[in-house]
Amino acid sequence: MASASLEHTDTSGGDTAELFHAATTVEAAIRFASWCDQQRHLTAQAAMEYFGLQKATAYRWLASYRAARGISA
């Protein structure tokens, strides 16, 4: 199986895996969760800046992370 290097320079949307420089969406989710685990003050703004996410995407991913971890907003 061929391996391709993912480079994302446009943050206007697009493939989730590509935004996270991951081979699959599952890998992107793991990278996001790992990053979230390391944050003292987890905010959508921080996720937007670090990953180049759109505002709505950052809020959706944070809500999913918190729900999976049982963290209240």
Rank of each mutant, 00 (worst) to 15 (best):
A2H: 13
S3K: 09
S3L: 07
A4S: 11
A4V: 11
S5F: 11
L6P: 01
L6V: 06
E7M: 10
E7F: 10
H8M: 13
T9H: 15
T9G: 14
T9F: 13
D10A: 11
D10I: 09
T11W: 09
G13K: 06
G14V: 05
G14S: 07
T16G: 03
A17V: 00
A17M: 05
L19W: 04
F20Q: 02
H21A: 15
H21L: 14
A23Y: 05
A23T: 06
A23P: 01
A23Q: 09
T24C: 01
T25A: 11
V26S: 06
V26N: 02
V26I: 04
E27Y: 02
A29F: 07
R31P: 08
A33M: 10
A33T: 13
A33F: 13
S34I: 05
W35I: 03
C36K: 04
D37P: 03
R40D: 15
R40A: 14
R40G: 10
H41P: 04
T43D: 05
A44Q: 12
A44Y: 09
Q45I: 02
Q45S: 09
A46L: 08
A46V: 01
A47P: 02
M48D: 04
G52D: 00
L53T: 06
Y59H: 10
Y59P: 00
R60V: 09
R60T: 10
A63S: 15
S64W: 03
S64A: 04
R66H: 00
R66L: 00
A68K: 05
I71R: 02
I71F: 06
I71W: 01
I71P: 02
A73Q: 08
A73L: 08
A73F: 01
